[in-house]
Structure formats: C-alpha cells, structure tokens
Nucleic acid binder design. Structure first.
Lengths: 193, 193
DNA sequence: CGCCAGTTATTGACGCATCAAGTTCGAGAA
DNA sequence: TTCTCGAACTTGATGCGTCAATAACTGGCG
C-alpha cells in the first residue's frame, strides 16, 4: 500500500503500524501522524488553491493565473518591458512555456515582442496600452482572491510561518542539481500490510 | 503595476488610480509587506513544489503525481476498490478528469472498472495485482520526495503551522455558495450501497 | 576568414485537463 | 405505465504545458 495517501479520513485503523510510536522518530521512510497531517494539509495549498485561483481569474478576467502573472510582472517594470528569459525566471516558467503564452498574449494585442539588436537572439516583451489596461482592471479581483482564499484567514504567526515554509521549500527544491547517489538508494523494501 | 506585485513594499500607495475600485467604495486592500512576502513564499509551494514532485514521479516511476494518488488511495481500501465518485472526491478531482485518468490506467492494466449492478450508473474502480505492485514500488520514492522537498526541512512549529494553514485554505475555498451558474462540486462522501 | 560552441528563443508533436454535451440508469410523479 | 428528473459516468473538442528538436545569433579559436 501506498503511503502518503490518507486512510484516516474515516478514522478507521491507523495504518502504517508502529511508525509513529518510534520514539526517536528517525524513520526516514514513512510519515508519522503529524507529518502526514501536514502533508495532507499541504495538498489543499498545492492542489485546491491554484485551481480556485485559476477558476476565479478565468471567470472574472478571462485570463489564466499564469497569464496574469506575466502581464503583472511586466507592468511593474519601469518601461513595462522585460527580456524573455528574465521574464521566464521571474514567473518560474520554462522559456518554452513562456514563449507559447507570450505568443498568445501578443495575438490578443496585450503585449509585443521585439528583438534586441546586436545581442544574439535576445528578445524583449513589452506591455501594450491595452495590456496595461487589462492588468489594471484585473488586479483588484486578483488581490481580493488572494486575500479571501489565503491571507485573510491566517493569523500573524501563520503568516510568518508560511514565509519560512515557502523559503524552505524553495531551498530544498533548488539545491542539488543532480545527485547520482540518491537515484540508487531511492528504493527501499516495503513492509507488507 | 499590477497587483500582487509589490508597490506597497514600503507602505507606499498603490499607484494606479482607482480605475476599478468602484465596488462599494471600499477599495480592495492591497497587500502589505508581510502579506506580500507570505504570498510570494506561497508561490513556491503552489507552483514549484507540484512541478518538482511531478517531475520526480515521472522520472522515477513513470507516472503522474495524480495517477499515483489514485492508485495509492485505492491501495489503502480494504478491498482495493472504490466507487468512481468517491475516488474523485478523495483525490480532489472532477469526475471527468478521473474518468479519463482511470481509463488510461485501465488500459495499462493497473486497475479495472466494473458497474455496480442495480445501482444506477455507479461504477467501481479496483486495483489489479499489477497496479498494487506498481504502487508499492513507487511509494518509497514518493515518500522520500515529500520528505526531501517539504517535511524534513520544517521545524515542528512550522509543521504544525502548515496544518493550520492548509485547513484554513480548505475552509476558505469551500465556503462561498454564492455564484450563479455553478453549484456542483461541494461534496461530501458518498455512502456505499 | 571560416567554423564551432554557447546563448537565447521558437516550434511541433503529444499528453493531459477542462468544459460542455451526451449516455445510462433508478425513482418518483402523473 | 409512461414521463421526467436527477445522479453517476463517459466522451469529444479544445487549449495549455512539456519535451525534444530547431533556429538565430554572437564570439572565440585556429
């Protein structure tokens, strides 16, 4: 059986035997009940939140959450312009994804691309007036959604914790470019049910 | 300048005239610096974490994070079986999405569907032996990833905070009945026949 | 000078998600 | 009985994301 799943939903038997009774708790394989609860709670943030924000953005502003991010980031530059690769980094997207999205936004007239002369293949994306108006119109709804779904329901201490957690996750994901040793150790025997 | 961006970093005000604040004259509050930091940190959890987990699942176990969830949930049922709609609820997915995914998993021989006789159109999904083996093989890697990217880098107090935050988000998203046009999806588990 | 190597960006194919129908069945109303 | 409604799924079209090429340049090397 698998793991992280859940099973407690119904309060029935506490799966994963002994794992949480280990005092030292240095059991690297499975999750104890506190960890499991945290992981399940995390799913709400990881899965439901983006879905909710996306749905709402779509409904209220006819654009994707990601499209909004792109336009928004551009709108914050002094000249409403940014190089594609920088924009990709800023929005945590692959250059490929960004290129597709920017292509669509360009077709909609919300931004324009232009090659930077004498600089390899570098390209700038610039927000148009129409694009700017669209972001400005969408912004209040976006902020409202962020507040409603997340910020406003957190106490100050949890707001602070969220900052630390985000930072930790970011660090954990970005450290280690490639660890050859781990691939081999990834598998461990599974106890039978 | 658009929204969540920054701008008030320093408590300064949102440039951008009230083009849309007309709603009840209560201008939507912007985010102050603490809130903004929390929101940005949250992006790591909302965007980078799922991407990292998905990539790793794909690489190590040739399956999607979501596919793993489906198989995993089934594997925890006493008879490795669950009704489609219940499975959809359990995995926070639409019935449509689940149907597509289950169709693929069935084609791969990892599970099987069967109509429940005399019960409307109800359908059960059951894990096959092969499916069970696959989940068991994938589980350790999954747990390792969850630990590595999230759990292990959190102090106990943040682990607890994460639980509260997840619960808060979940509550915030699921309240709000208001909204014409869409009323489905608020759901409670379905009792077995 | 000509070429190779390294960046930076675009493209196309393909998989997966979503949305709007469509299908199938049971149950209660007429 | 027959109608209609609603629940539980499935299906197909469409659009976005990803991965693996490919393209467009610049600069350095020989």
């Amino acid at each position: 059986m698998a793991k992280t799943g859940d099973a407690q939903q119904r309060g029935e038997r506490p799966r994963q035997a002994g794992s949480q009774s280990r005092a030292s708790d240095v059991e690297p394989r499975w999750l104890n009940s506190d960890e499991l609860a945290a992981w399940l709670a995390n799913s709400a943030i990881m899965i439901s939140l983006p879905a909710a924000l996306d749905a709402r953005m779509q409904r209220e502003s006819q654009m994707t959450f990601f499209e909004y991010m792109v336009l928004s980031v551009l709108s914050e530059e002094p000249d409403r312009t940014m190089q594609m690769s920088a924009l990709a980094t800023r929005t945590s997207a692959s250059l490929s994804r960004l290129s597709h999205v920017v292509g669509r936004l360009e077709k909609r007239g919300l931004l324009a691309r232009s090659r930077i002369p004498g600089a390899g293949r570098r390209t700038n994306a610039t927000l148009t007036e129409a694009g700017y108006d669209v972001v400005v119109a969408a912004a209040p709804g976006h902020v409202a959604a962020v507040r409603e779904y997340l910020i406003d329901s957190l106490e100050p201490r949890d707001l602070a914790a969220l900052r630390r957690i985000g930072a930790a996750v970011d660090a954990a994901i970005h450290r280690e470019p490639a660890d050859p040793a781990r691939a081999a150790t990834a598998h461990v025997d599974v106890p039978a049910p």
